[in-house]
């Protein structure tokens, strides 16, 4: 077990003993990743916030089932993914559809603008095939290794590498700045 996993286990132990600060640390460490996944899944900020709250309620209630054999982020990713899918299946929240064809290449000026590019990239990520989007999110949002992601998706490591690469290649091609743009 890695030092990081040990500290996560200790943090979970502290939370289970009723330590408020441990809960707060878990929230502050992982809220962005959970929210990011939910936002990319649903495409709507309010829904993503609802889903994030659902995820943390579920996480808090089932902390005792985290045994430290895998990284906390791996466990959290699994919970996050399942909660989003369950919410969508139950019809409580529906992902907002996105079409890659609607995306226009950014202009050179847009390409240099963080705010604009972030919005465009997030839209493009939402339009990726779900398995590629999930693989990319597992690695980049949750900080999982390819091996951890492979375990989560129950696929070979090479498959995760391919999915992440395909996702990036698609994004890179979509977001190449248009020639001559202002």
């Amino acid at each position: 077990m890695s030092a990081n996993a040990l500290s996560e286990l200790e943090l979970v132990r502290a939370a289970l003993s009723g330590d408020e600060r441990a809960f707060e640390t878990l929230v502050r460490t992982h809220a962005d990743a959970v929210y990011g996944h939910a936002l990319r899944f649903f495409g709507d900020q309010a829904t993503a916030e609802d889903a994030t709250q659902e995820v943390f309620i579920k996480v808090f209630r089932s902390l005792a089932s985290f045994d430290g054999r895998s990284a906390f982020s791996t466990w959290l990713f699994r919970v996050t993914r399942n909660v989003c899918l369950d919410l969508a299946r139950a019809g409580k929240h529906r992902p907002v559809p996105t079409d890659l064809m609607e995306l226009e290449p950014p202009t050179v000026r847009d390409f240099a603008d963080d705010v604009v590019m972030s919005r465009v990239v997030e839209t493009a990520i939402r339009a990726l095939p779900p398995e590629e989007r999930d693989a990319l999110g597992a690695v980049t949002l949750f900080g999982m290794s390819y091996e951890q992601a492979a375990e989560s998706f129950d696929v070979p490591v090479g498959t995760v590498k391919s999915r992440v690469f395909r996702a990036r290649r698609t994004l890179a091609r979509l977001l190449e700045p248009a020639e001559g743009g202002a």
């Binding site: 939370a15 009723g18 330590d19 408020e20 441990a22 809960f23 707060e24 878990l26 929230v27 502050r28 809220a31 962005d32 990743a33 959970v34 929210y35 990011g36 936002l39 990319r40 993503a48 916030e49 994030t52 709250q53 943390f56 309620i57 808090f60 209630r61 390409f111 963080d114 590019m117 972030s118 990239v121 997030e122 980049t140 949002l141 990036r168 994004l171 890179a172 091609r173 977001l175 190449e176």
Partner: peptide, 30 residues
Amino acid sequence: SLERIASLPAPTASTDLVTRLVALGTEEAA
């Protein structure tokens, strides 16, 4: 393009959302 995309910030949870989540954690701790 790859380097530009990698340099962009990922989505972040709003301060309000984090506050609510922390409150939930406080409740659970209690």
